[in-house]
Design a protein around this nucleic acid. Sequence first.
DNA 1: TCAATCCTTAAGCTGGCACTTAATCTGCGT
DNA 2: ACGCAGATTAAGTGCCAGCTTAAGGATTGA
Lengths: 105, 105
Amino acid sequence: MEPTVLDALTSPRRRAILRMVWDRELMAGEIAAGFDVSWPAISQNLGVLRRAGLVIERRAGTRRLYHADQVALAPVADLLRVMWAADLLALKDAVEADAGRGPRS
Amino acid sequence: MEPTVLDALTSPRRRAILRMVWDRELMAGEIAAGFDVSWPAISQNLGVLRRAGLVIERRAGTRRLYHADQVALAPVADLLRVMWAADLLALKDAVEADAGRGPRS
DNA sequence: TCAATCCTTAAGCTGGCACTTAATCTGCGT
DNA sequence: ACGCAGATTAAGTGCCAGCTTAAGGATTGA
């Protein structure tokens, strides 16, 4: 029932979130502002990351602050670098495919 | 359109196939016999692995032989070890969840 | 060329996952 | 107590990856 580390990492969105909080602590709202999807969507993804043990939640008043758990992430740090590189390629491909709708080069 | 290395590795089934042909060459039929899904399902997964450049196909008569491309796999070998370990855990959890239907311990 | 074997490709179905909107919760200020 | 801001939880929708069955090559042997 609880999501595994791999479950959490298979989503590009969650990898992007993880990169945002890699070396700093951010409010849920700040994280959500970085994407053009709804707040609840980000909240749900944060929940997956938290239950998988990849991020740590800290409450401060009405706010919830998140940051990557470096210890838990150490074994998959290399994996993440590979995936982030792949994410950039996928983004590049998507942009080019979209440009394909316009004037052909 | 062509599947990426990561696309190929996200599927537990494909990781299992990859492990089968890690250090030996097997016929498509032999691989399919190792799973309780249909032949075409395995063939499709082999196609993904092949287009992603992770396995090499060799034709011998009417047969098609597959084996892992060690060179292409080298950069993600560690990743695979992590994923195979996770696969074992997932299997263990699945078995325990299934046992939960029967008599409680 | 005919049939048989081995395997892939085509077409359609389905479960799961990430998203949406709406409702709810929690802590703070007044 | 009340209202508001910050965020999660609940309920429902749509899409996609992987499966199924059925049809279609490719190669060998008679």
